[in-house]
């Protein structure tokens, strides 16, 4: 691999479960501290110091949870599909494990986005649920996650399960834009858009800077929980190898 100097050494080492376990072990504390600081700082800033909305008052503050979780739900699906493609093409075990570990996190982010949206919708729109295009496509994204998770748990052979869920998540990725646009057109057909989330008034910086902090914090949190799940998965799948046994004896 000497000719591949343009690629840092640790990058292709990630393909080996053992090295991946060690590298994530080194990265984990840093990301954990960053997630803690950003989320704590962002929440305090967002909840106490950001100005209240002139129309919605304090109820708007839930967007500091809602927007990051919605962004994460989408990013996690993309990550899952990319990991699936890598796993299918290069047959990398670690990519399979990333796919399996990312699915439940993405699904829980989608649930969080839907729940916070509902809680915000009750005082603002007067109902928990509106068949708005964005809500509906988030719900469908959640269903796609559930499908991947169900398929993964239904197949007993680990490598078959990983490949099958990789195919499914790739099919889902092709479909996500189609679903998104079809739902948007459907919404404009069936009912006039009474409530529009898309055209927000331009936020002042005091409002969006804490939001940005929260988004970055959520990404760090995602990285932390992904790495923790991944490390568990690595230990479990490599439980018959020598290095895992040594590791267990040491502890």
């Amino acid at each position: 691999m000497a000719e591949k100097k343009w690629m840092p050494r640790w990058f292709y080492q990630l393909a080996s479960p053992r090295w991946c376990y060690q590298i994530t072990g080194k990265l984990l504390p840093g990301f954990a501290v960053a997630a803690l600081l950003l989320l704590a700082g962002g929440s305090i800033w967002a909840l106490m110091f950001a100005p209240a909305d002139y129309q919605q008052g304090n109820s708007f503050r839930i967007i500091y949870l809602h927007v990051p979780s919605a962004i994460l739900a989408q990013s996690a699906y993309m990550l899952m599909a990319v990991a699936g493609a890598i796993g299918l093409i290069w047959k990398m075990k670690v990519a399979d494990m990333v796919l399996k570990s990312a699915a439940p996190i993405g699904a829980s982010m989608a649930v969080l986005a839907l729940a916070t949206g509902a809680i915000w919708g009750k005082p603002t729109w007067g109902s928990w649920w509106v068949w708005d295009a964005r809500l509906t496509s988030m719900l469908i994204l959640f269903f796609l996650y559930l499908g991947v998770m169900a398929l993964n748990s239904a197949i007993e052979n680990e490598s078959t399960a990983a490949q099958a869920s990789a195919v499914l998540s790739l099919v889902g990725v092709v479909n996500i834009p189609i679903i998104k646009y079809s739902v948007e057109w459907w919404n404009t057909l069936h009912q006039p858009a009474t409530f529009k989330l898309t055209e927000k008034p331009a936020m002042p910086a005091e409002m969006w800077v804490p939001l940005l902090v929260m988004v970055i914090g959520f990404y760090c949190l995602f990285a932390v929980s992904l790495m923790m799940r991944l490390r568990n998965e690595i230990i479990w799948r490599e439980r018959r190898t020598g290095w895992v046994r040594e590791l267990l004896i040491k502890q």
Partner: peptide
């Protein structure tokens, strides 16, 4: 479970 979400665009159109 796998296929129904993917059917939604066809149903809508």
């Amino acid at each position: 479970l796998l296929v129904l979400p993917l059917y939604i665009p066809v149903l809508i159109f």
